[in-house]
Design a protein around this nucleic acid. Sequence first.
DNA 1: GAATTTATGATAGCATGCATGTATTCATGT
DNA 2: ACATGAATACATGCATGCTATCATAAATTC
Lengths: 217, 217
Amino acid sequence: MIMEPRLYTTSADYVYQELRHQIITKQLKPGQRLPEVNIAVQMGVSRTPVREALRRLASEGLVLIIPNSGARLASPTRREMEDTYAVREQLECISVAIAATRISERNLRRLEDAILEEEKAFEEKNLELYLEINENFHRIIAEASGNRVLADFVENILARTNAYVVFYDPFYDIEDNPSIAQHRAIAQALKEREREKAVDLMREHLKHSFYDLNKPS
Amino acid sequence: MIMEPRLYTTSADYVYQELRHQIITKQLKPGQRLPEVNIAVQMGVSRTPVREALRRLASEGLVLIIPNSGARLASPTRREMEDTYAVREQLECISVAIAATRISERNLRRLEDAILEEEKAFEEKNLELYLEINENFHRIIAEASGNRVLADFVENILARTNAYVVFYDPFYDIEDNPSIAQHRAIAQALKEREREKAVDLMREHLKHSFYDLNKPS
DNA sequence: GAATTTATGATAGCATGCATGTATTCATGT
DNA sequence: ACATGAATACATGCATGCTATCATAAATTC
């Protein structure tokens, strides 16, 4: 499989993206220790950018840093996941509510594009790409709210939840994944400026996503 | 005035706290450039911990980092403040709602203690201390929700808003600052497990705080 | 033999020097 | 006078060596 070429401006950024990649592709396991030197050597950079990437991941809850002791990959409990989704629901519902009143034509088109790409990635069973575009869908809505702070927070919580998806290794039934249909419904509601409807659909969508995570895999 | 001794474990932590201190005490001005070397020399440490502190402040929206160019202190517009408070309202209302159902006796006592300290700091006109304890009040409620992720997010948004207080230089009328009375009312509602009431009071409290920021100073 | 102390190894935290990229200034030409 | 471009100063990004701290294991004492 040909990977999308990773774009990055700095080494720290590269390490950050690479670590996320390794998390998504399960090369790293929950709770695993992440010594700076190991990562530095493996990625051919020095410890400095590694430290920076680890702290960024820590701010997203994906990595746990114990002062003077080291970093390890998070191993979220079911409880932590519930908590995360509770926050995500709050943020995304307000996000979609505001977006419903002020989303631009351009962003509506971006949403539709995202849905198309999403279908493609899903059919190709490219989980990493699918997650990335899924993230994009939600990101576009957050941006469309016009509230920059809200968008930042949504960004953070997306980083958390999409990694959790992998930690909990859900079974995606190719015959029955309602997620994309739900996205389409949300996009439609936004297009029609149906605020309440969009919020309800989003809430339903997130509840379902969370439920999916907890299905036996 | 005798300052509370700052406790810190690492140099990076020291720089972080010291920078926040300088922001709160208006030694730094919105939009001001923050070159790593200057800060490093001034604080008697190397650039490394300074970089770390700056990035942490950036994650709290207090500092803007432009890659390869440098960091500067944020200069939030009124719009950004509105946005921040909108998010804060969401997070704190859900926070207090959950806390109302499960706050412990111990945390109720901590709330009361915070209110007492707060009154003292206000009477002494110690703005920095007052802000710190004010922050504590909200932090305790967030922790009492039992949702760690939520508490993290509240922590982040508290860091933002309390610096904004200084950026916008509000006039605190010593005769008429309803904030502490509002805190007392919220604590009372929590004690009585009056969920809806606590949420309404919190919303009112935040609306008022935001309004205060926008009074002519 | 258990507990406490001591030694040893390993890792994060910090300082510093070098490389790279950016902003400013000044010269040059139109 | 203004625009353009080169040169210079400056700040960040990264690498590397050193130091402080923590965890583990060995040793000594009771």
